[in-house]
């Protein structure tokens, strides 16, 4: 039957629409890729690589946050290749304080108790190290400023993701609280979680201005995000 076998006009329309949609998809993907290349290096070469040190580096503490087996393995490999601190806090050595850099752990016990255990652990470490100078008022200010930033970023968290992963974001502010840069220094392996982490920081900006007592050099922050 000729009218049975004959394709209708709808068929041709569907074909054309299908091709058009495919082209649109390709165009969006290509533009996203091109835009990204123009603005930042590819994912494989994120700034994390600039910290590469010999595999023998003994400076890294093991990850302190809970992680699945797979991500633990990933952490270990990453720690060998790219010694970015896996724990929320970078390693602390007396030398760093002796060199004149302050560490933003508040002196007040009440402030410490509001922070996670691993930070309280560092505080203990500092207390038992004789050379560590007593935290100054400047340290206290910085800790409080960091906490304010955390609250503002936390308010931008996405809901109902139902995905798991660990991301560490590093960002730099100017004195007025404007976001100067933000980047992923530890990827979850899931582009969605990485991008949402950056979005949380970027949407929370601009932040309140930093107190005059806080050094410019201290306005680079490192924030781990734990999706579960």
């Amino acid at each position: 039957m000729s009218f049975v076998d004959q394709p209708s006009g709808g068929r041709g329309f569907a074909f054309i629409t299908a091709i058009a949609m495919q082209c649109l998809l390709l165009a969006v993907a290509a533009s996203a890729f091109t835009a990204y290349r123009a603005s930042s290096p590819p994912r494989g070469a994120l700034p994390v690589a600039t910290f590469t040190t010999p595999a023998t580096t003994p400076a890294q503490p093991p990850p302190s946050e809970p992680a699945s087996d797979a991500s633990k393995n990933a952490d270990q490999v990453q720690a060998r290749q790219k010694p970015v601190p896996a724990a929320p806090l970078p390693p602390v050595s007396p030398g760093s304080n002796a060199a004149g850099k302050s560490w933003p752990i508040p002196a007040g016990k009440s402030a410490v108790s509001a922070l996670p255990e691993n930070i309280a652990g560092v505080e203990t470490q500092l207390q038992i190290t004789a050379e560590v100078p007593a935290p100054s008022a400047e340290d206290d200010l910085l800790a409080r400023y960091a906490q304010r930033l955390r609250n503002l970023i936390h308010a931008r968290r996405p809901r109902g993701l139902n995905q798991e992963g660990e991301v560490v974001v590093q960002f730099h502010l100017d004195r007025n609280g404007a976001l100067q840069s933000s980047e992923i220094i530890r990827s979850s392996g899931n582009i969605r979680l990485d991008r949402l982490s950056l979005r949380m920081v970027r949407q929370a900006a601009p932040f309140p201005a930093a107190d005059k007592e806080i050094n410019d050099a201290q306005l680079t922050f490192q924030l781990p995000l734990h999706f579960h």
Binding site: P90, K101, A217
Partner: peptide, 10 residues
């Protein structure tokens, strides 16, 4: 460590 000020995990 000196460059980045840590923020408690979210």
């Amino acid at each position: 460590a000196q460059d980045a000020t840590p923020i408690a995990p979210i």
